[in-house]
Design a protein around this nucleic acid. Structure first.
Lengths: 203, 203
DNA sequence: TCTTTTAGACTGACCAGTCAGTACAAAAAG
DNA sequence: CTTTTTGTACTGACTGGTCAGTCTAAAAGA
């Protein structure tokens, strides 16, 4: 049993969170293979045995970390798109902003995602592909709405554009935080917003 | 001496090429740390010692591989931008196409670049940052030309846009080749072209 | 009491890098 | 022409070290 089970409480759950945070940072810096379990345990301030008490093995820890992070990302995107007041294209815009904000908050996770997402032949590849599909489909939903509302061209390949937007936001945000961290979110958002609203808009 | 030394000949040079190809594939699939020197040697059809005869160590092999690949990419971009006949914006368009074509040809290298480019704390990080700067500045040159010619808005932050375009092309291309390889280059190029030409254009 | 965590010793697999030696071609010597 | 030397390229067994995962006995929560 997961004991008391409060919202974020539970002794075990706290330990798992500490391990997630530590693993996230280290793997973002060094990569999965270059990060040892001993390091993760040490940074989390926990004994090595605890890692194996809470997770089956190193791979499992990483996969759960991925699921957890992408879950947060998707929730954030959905919430941004849920605001029914604006025009569909504004919802897309809100999603882009939400994506940037998420990455700003969880930079380590974003970097790690960027590094691992397009890799082949790894144990967690299928998990990751699935999670990507989910996130892209959220964006695609917003695009489809915009097309239906006549705000975007009818001949738009929303699948491809959604993938493009998803990737673009991810890579631009990480690039921003890595090489030009002094810039503001608004700055970056403005550029992406401009690009997306550009010729995609119905004339 | 490097023996006979023909244009692309030379026994040693051939061996190095074989090692580059093997390392590229394996590292794209598994990542740098997860790829052993034994594996690289085996796939190249060469003894392990040969790797160390030709390169100081594993890191050095990887760094030279990166320099080599980014060199090819930059040459390709410059060539695409050099066509003086079209309008500046068309040169940018040509660069995007060249980028896509390059990635289509050297998918493994592109994947590897995508995985390693935004990683921190690695030995080759400075090399990679430098190479990125170079590639981005080529794109930026085209953007600056377009602004000077009045084809793009004057208030455009060409540095940020160049980084965005570079990252976008890289990520979209890899995404395309990984998840929708049946699509044509033209298809993908059309979407990116539309986005770049969109609102960035002077009204 | 039952669960969770600790501290860390240990094992077996794997791996980066080394090194003594082989293969071979071209030059020098006889 | 034949033999010897020299330099280059390559080989693969070996070494020292690292790391994932196991295990245990005991402490700390709840």
């Amino acid at each position: 049993m997961t004991s008391t089970r409060a919202g974020g409480g539970g002794r075990r759950e706290q330990t798992r969170q500490k391990l997630f945070v530590a693993a996230q940072q280290l793997i973002a810096e060094q990569g999965f293979s270059a990060t040892s379990v001993d390091e993760i345990a040490e940074r989390a301030g926990v004994a090595k045995g605890t890692v194996y008490y809470n997770f089956k093995n190193k791979n499992e820890l990483f996969e759960e970390l991925l699921r957890h992070g992408v879950g947060l990302l998707n929730a954030s995107l959905r919430e941004a798109g849920a605001g029914r007041e604006g025009a569909p294209i504004d919802q897309l815009d809100a999603m882009i902003r939400a994506g940037l904000a998420f990455i700003e908050q969880y930079r380590a996770f974003a970097r790690l995602l960027l590094s691992e997402l397009w890799r082949t032949n790894r144990a967690w590849q299928s998990t990751l592909t699935l999670l990507r599909e989910e996130a892209v489909s959220v964006v695609r939903g917003a695009l489809d709405d915009a097309v239906a509302a006549g705000e975007l061209r009818e001949d738009l390949d929303t699948g491809l554009v959604a993938a493009a937007v998803f990737g673009m936001v991810l890579v631009v945000a990480v690039d921003w935080l890595t090489f030009q961290p002094e810039r503001s979110l608004d700055d970056v958002h403005a550029v992406l917003s401009t690009m997306v609203r550009g010729r995609l808009a119905a004339e």
